[in-house]
Simulated assay, not measured.
Amino acid sequence: MRESKRNQGVHMSGSYRVGIIGCGGMGGSHARHWTQKPQTDVVAVADVSERSARKLADEFDAKPYTDYAGMLKEEACDIVSITTWQNVRAEVTVKAAESGAKGILGEKPMASSLREADLMLASCAQHGVKLAIGHQRRFTPQNMEARRLVTDGAIGAPTAMLRRDAHGLLNRGTHELDEMMYVLGDPAPVWVIGQVTRKTDRWERRVRCEDRCAAIIAFEGGIRGTYESDLPDPGLQGDVIYGTEGILKRGPEGGLLLLNRRAGDWQSITPPPVEVDQYDEFIYWLDGSGEGHRNDGETARLTMELMMAIYESARIRDVVELPLQTGDNPLDLMVEEGALPVEIHGRYDIRAPFPEQTN
């Protein structure tokens, strides 16, 4: 058992009481980060698995629950970390907002549909609760320096950015698209065209997942974002930003490589260290000592909207102009409408195996 802050004499009367809902890997990560902050104390954890709840509770000297509603009612949490699967995240967020919590830090993706994301935002707005979603790549030294270089004009006006990944749009693509927007300076997206395939019965934490995905996103100013996931080789070098006067890309060991008209060759740039993470910024936001949170709910909703727009483009076989009007998950709609028939039968979950996968 880890010695708690209360036993260490660190727990102050003015510190924030933190509850964790979802005691898997990310629940443990949130608990560790909150425990490292002098302003926060993890007091309770909840999970449908009693074993998982007790294990995390023992590690952080917290009270375990198998009923998250009971935890919210009894513990008077100031901060709630919601690290459940995305298919129940909206329901849990609404309950946490109604409980009197001051702030909620959820995991990515924000939800499993745009309608759910809007429900989360509406509930938090109604109850005066601050909501942020854990797109933590906005806090990496590499991405923060890349954003600074782009916004300072190191490559002129940005024209295109490429991102490539695997393991599903809602799973990993949410990071890639959010990272794309952040590095480009958060330009407003204008339209999306996308394509998906789903010949296998693929799921990701009990939410349907496509087999392959590709998209082009048009941002204000004519910037194009190209995203692809799970496509066959040869692979795209998905770490490049092009501009009217240069190119910026990832370098070795967390560095950056810059080529522009001011130098005759590639420049190697070492990003400065980052002093604030998403948990620090969340605390400052609650304190009123910060201007906001770079992962706030509205920003996360935009990432959610882009992912749903990619699915919707595949569904209607046309460009989708934003804002997106479809609230349901268009991938679910395509499957239920028979537009994506399974050719290789046998359901499987790439993150949380179904019972039949373990037999």
Rank of each mutant, 00 (worst) to 15 (best):
L184F: 02
L184S: 02
L184Q: 01
G185Y: 02
G185H: 07
G185F: 05
D186S: 04
D186C: 04
P189S: 07
V190Q: 05
W191L: 08
V192K: 06
G194H: 05
Q195L: 09
V196I: 15
V196M: 10
T197L: 12
D201N: 15
D201L: 11
D201W: 10
R202Y: 07
E204L: 02
R205C: 03
R206T: 14
V207S: 11
R208M: 10
E210T: 09
E210H: 05
D211K: 12
A214I: 09
A214D: 08
A215R: 03
G221I: 03
G221L: 08
G222C: 10
I223T: 05
R224F: 07
T226A: 11
E228R: 02
L231S: 02
L231E: 11
D233E: 12
P234K: 03
Q237R: 15
D239V: 10
D239C: 06
I241Y: 05
Y242D: 08
G243Y: 04
E245Y: 02
E245C: 07
G246Q: 09
I247W: 04
I247Y: 00
I247M: 12
L248C: 14
K249M: 15
K249P: 01
G251V: 10
G251F: 03
P252M: 13
P252I: 14
L257D: 10
L258H: 00
L259G: 01
L259D: 06
L259N: 08
R261H: 10
R262W: 09
W266A: 01
W266P: 01
Q267M: 15
S268G: 12
S268R: 15
I269E: 09
P272M: 11
P272K: 12
V274Y: 02
V274E: 07
V276S: 09
V276D: 09
V276A: 04
D280I: 04
E281W: 01
Y284I: 02
L286W: 01
D287Y: 06
D287K: 15
S289C: 01
G290Y: 07
H293N: 15
D296L: 00
D296P: 00
D296M: 07
G297F: 04
E298A: 11
E298H: 08
A300P: 01
A300S: 04
A300V: 01
R301K: 14
R301Q: 08
L302F: 01
L302H: 08
E305Y: 02
L306Y: 03
L306P: 00
